[in-house]
C-alpha cells in the first residue's frame, strides 16, 4: 500500500460502507421483494403474447405474412395459445402494439414517464413552461385524487372515532349504530357512488366535496370497528384499578381507553386511507373532471390501455405513500408512548 493515508482510508470506508449497505438491503427484505417483482414482470411479459395475439396477427396479415389459420373468421373463434404456437415466428410486435389489449411493462413505464416528468418539464402545458401543472399529467390528476382522498379520510376518520366513542359509552348506540354501519358496507360502492354524486350535485355540492363524501363513506367503517375494539381493549383489572381511584368516566376515557386504543386506531387508519383512495377514484368515474379515476375511464373510452395502467400505477404509488405516511406517524406516536424501539 503506497497510497496516501487519506485516500487509502477514504477508499476503504467507501468500500465497506457500500458492501454493508448491499448486505443490509438484501437481508432487510429487499431480496424477496426484488424476486417477486421480477417474477411478476416475467409473467406479465409472457401474458402480453396471448392477450394481444389476434391484433398482432391482423397487423401481420396486413403486412403480407402467412397466418395459420388464414381466415379472420376462423381466428376469431380459435384459442389464443393455439394461435401463438401456430404463428410463433410472427409474435414479435406483441410488445410494441399501439392500443394493446395488454400493454407490456416497458410501454406502461414509458407512458408513466411521458405523463409525469416529460409532460411537466418539456410539455407546452407543463409546469416549467406554463407555471401550472398540465391537465394531461398524472401529477395533476394524482393531486386531484389526493385532495379528495385526504379530505374524505379526515371526515371518515373523525366520524369513525366519534361513532366508536358513542358505541362504547352508550348501550343504545351500541345496539343501533353497528348494524347500520355493517349494512352500509354491504351496498356496492360502484352502485352507490353515482347516486351520491347526483344527489349532492342537486343540492349544489360537487367536485371535491362529493368525492370526499364517498371516501368518508368507505373509510369510516374500518375506523369504527378498530376503534371500538381498541377502546374496549383495557382488561378488567385496569378498569378496576381506576374504579378504586374513583375516577370519572372522562378520566377513564382519556387516561386508559384512549391510550389503549392507539395501536388499534392506526391499524384501522391504514385500511381507512386505502379505502378513501378507492372512494375518491370511484367518485371520479362518473364525472370526467380530472383525477386518476377520470384518467382510467378516459383511457378505456379511447382504448388507451397504457393510460389506464399508468393511472393504476399512480394510484398504487399514492396508496403506498399514504399508508407509509400513516405508518410513520404510528411509529412516532408509539415511540412517544414509550414503546420499545
Amino acid at each position: 500500500m503506497t497510497d496516501t493515508p487519506v485516500s487509502g482510508a477514504g477508499g476503504g470506508i467507501g468500500r465497506t460502507a457500500r458492501a454493508s449497505w448491499v448486505a443490509r438491503a438484501l437481508s432487510g427484505g429487499l431480496l424477496p421483494v426484488v424476486t417477486v417483482v421480477i417474477a411478476i414482470l416475467a409473467i406479465w411479459y409472457v401474458a402480453v403474447v396471448p392477450m394481444n395475439i389476434k391484433e398482432v396477427l391482423t397487423q401481420q396479415e396486413r403486412a403480407g405474412a402467412e397466418i395459420v389459420p388464414p381466415s379472420a373468421a376462423e381466428r376469431r373463434d380459435a384459442g389464443r395459445w393455439g394461435l401463438v404456437f401456430n404463428n410463433f415466428d410472427l409474435i414479435g410486435p406483441s410488445w410494441s402494439m399501439e392500443r394493446a389489449r395488454l400493454p407490456a411493462p416497458h410501454q406502461v413505464a414509458q407512458e408513466l414517464w411521458a405523463s409525469t416528468w416529460d409532460e411537466e418539464v418539456n410539455g407546452r402545458r407543463g409546469i416549467v413552461r406554463s407555471g401550472t401543472l398540465s391537465n394531461r399529467s398524472l401529477i395533476y390528476h394524482g393531486g386531484v385524487t389526493l385532495g379528495a382522498t385526504v379530505v374524505g379520510f379526515l371526515i371518515g376518520a373523525a366520524l369513525g372515532v366519534a361513532l366508536a366513542v358513542g358505541i362504547v359509552y352508550s348501550r343504545v348506540m351500541d345496539l343501533s349504530v353497528m348494524p347500520w354501519a355493517i349494512i352500509s358496507q354491504t351496498i356496492p360502492i360502484v352502485a352507490l357512488a353515482p347516486m351520491i354524486i347526483v344527489v349532492l350535485y342537486s343540492v349544489g355540492l360537487s367536485g371535491l366535496v362529493a368525492k370526499a363524501v364517498i371516501s368518508a363513506y368507505l373509510s369510516f367503517f374500518p375506523v369504527v370497528v378498530g376503534m371500538v375494539k381498541g377502546l374496549r381493549s383495557p382488561d378488567q383489572m385496569q378498569m378496576d384499578l381506576l374504579h378504586t381511584y374513583n375516577a370519572t368516566p372522562a378520566q377513564q376515557f382519556w387516561r386508559l381507553r384512549l391510550p389503549s386504543s392507539v395501536p388499534y386506531l392506526f391499524a384501522s387508519l391504514k385500511i381507512g386511507i386505502a379505502a378513501s383512495l378507492v372512494g375518491a377514484i370511484v367518485g371520479e368515474l362518473p364525472v370526467q373532471r380530472g383525477g386518476l379515476g377520470a384518467r382510467m375511464l378516459g383511457g378505456s373510452y379511447y382504448g388507451q390501455t397504457e393510460q389506464i395502467w399508468a393511472a393504476l400505477f399512480a394510484a398504487a404509488v399514492l396508496a403506498a405513500g399514504l399508508v407509509w405516511l400513516i405508518g410513520w406517524i404510528e411509529r412516532r406516536t408509539l415511540r412517544a408512548m414509550g414503546a420499545p424501539t
Binding site: M237, Q238, L241, V262, M337, G338, A339
Partner: peptide
C-alpha cells in the same frame, strides 16, 4: 399482576 400502563 403489576398492571402498569405501558405508555407511562
Amino acid at each position: 399482576a403489576a398492571g402498569l400502563y405501558p405508555w407511562r
